[in-house]
Simulated assay, not measured.
Amino acid sequence: MTLLIVALAIVFIVLTIAVISKTQTLLKGVKGSSEQNDEVVDSANNLNAIGLLVFWILSVIGVFWSFFYAKKDFLIAFGDIPSAASVHGKETDYWFWVSMVVVTAAFILVNSVLFYFPVKYRYDKNRKAHYYPHNNTLEIVWTLIPAVVMAALVFTGLRVWNKVMADAPKDAEIIEIMGKQFGWQVRYGGVENGKLGNYNYKLIDDAAGNEFGLDFSDENSFDDFTSSTEMHIPKGKPVLLKIRARDVLHSVFIPHMRVKMDAVPGMPTKFWFIADKSTADMRAELGNPDFKYEIACTEVCGRSHFGMKLILVVDEPADYEKWKKEQKSLLASKPEFLEKVPAGLKAKALKYFPTEAPADSTTASAGTSLPTVSALR
């Protein structure tokens, strides 16, 4: 690719020098006879016209060569490249290629005519120009056809977008993902009720481990569990991502799923999708046992933006449910948060703890002692 760009640049420089040289010759010949001027003009126009046509042909060859050369690095399905790993992603890819075909065809057609005309209609002293100022029919045709084609592309894309931005199905798995400099935090609603508990930004306390600002006065938060290393989702089931940011603007990007949505401070966003290829499926399809889905940030958010990523694991439904049951709730992993639970709800909160807590249980900070679970009963 680099060599091709260098070659085209050299061709461009040579043609520029040739044009300048011929222009100077043309200017010098202005004082001569009309016959001499016609010969100079013809020579210059022929060189320019042929040079432009050669440049266009080489450009088209270069564009198609670079396309097929880079095909192995494509993410969007083409030839032997795997298709998207989500249901809506396959539809997105289809309309992407439809748009590419339409735009590429129009580009080649229009520019081929543009570069052909300097050859076809270059200066000829024996030809008279035809005065053709206006044609209403032609104006309507070349305005209406592109307008209809572009409107069709826009509205088909809008239909797909509205589908994924509509309310998620009622049986969707609800997962919250929160961006902060420079990492992703994931929260699940637990196994008991699957509902996410309330949060309040005023309750955020990184030192204590409450990075989400969970409100433990809401019993739905008792079984919530979190992760900062990976996100698990089930294959074949709708997943609703509730997205928010804690500091600056971030953007959730799951390339293989065709998911991208900004995470905006103070303005929760969402995106739902259905993954139809598990991590194991994709590894088998690619023949790469080390393949991993990733979640990246695609909004420049600071110095370490480039390293802001999270591993996404797509499990079979049974494996996903098993994994969820193995997770420990934030409340159980941080017993000191029991102090935040209202007295009337402590009995419910204790269901998420072992029957007996170690006698020397202490808080993770400030060295203050925390009562055992038995004492709280």
Rank of each mutant, 00 (worst) to 15 (best):
P265S: 13
N48V: 11
M150T: 10
V314Y: 00
V341P: 00
L338A: 01
V110L: 15
K322S: 02
D276Q: 08
T269E: 11
A318L: 01
T104L: 06
W161T: 06
R244L: 11
K120T: 02
F74T: 06
Y293W: 02
V160I: 15
V87D: 12
P169M: 07
P133H: 06
S34V: 15
K348E: 14
M178K: 05
L8W: 10
D290G: 04
L144K: 07
S99L: 01
Y94I: 11
V30W: 14
A129I: 07
L331G: 00
V101T: 07
S99Y: 03
L196R: 09
S33Y: 11
V252S: 08
A343F: 12
T372H: 13
Q327E: 13
P371C: 01
N135K: 09
H88V: 06
W184S: 04
Y132C: 04
D42G: 04
W65G: 12
V160S: 15
G29W: 03
Q185K: 10
C297I: 01
F222Q: 03
Q181I: 06
T269D: 09
M178T: 15
M257I: 05
Y199L: 04
I174Y: 04
L241T: 01
F222H: 09
G51C: 01
S43G: 13
V101L: 10
T363W: 10
K120N: 15
F212T: 02
Y69S: 11
I175K: 02
S83W: 08
F67I: 06
P118Q: 10
Y132A: 05
A275Q: 00
G209P: 08
E173Y: 11
S227Q: 10
V164H: 08
S329Y: 02
K120M: 11
Y320I: 00
D42E: 14
K325Q: 15
Y121F: 13
V314E: 02
D206F: 14
M261V: 12
K277F: 01
D290M: 03
V186R: 00
T23G: 14
L27C: 04
K340F: 13
V373E: 00
K348P: 03
A44W: 11
T355S: 13
V103T: 06
V41W: 08
F107Q: 09
V264A: 00
Y123N: 07
I108G: 02
K128W: 02
G32N: 14
N46C: 08
I20W: 00
I243E: 03
G266A: 08
L330T: 14
G89W: 02
T16F: 06
Y121D: 15
A357V: 12
D281M: 00
L331Y: 03
A70H: 12
K128P: 01
T298M: 12
D247G: 04
I175T: 08
I274E: 05
V60D: 01
E316L: 04
L153T: 07
M261K: 05
S369K: 15
R377P: 03
D290Q: 10
E35S: 14
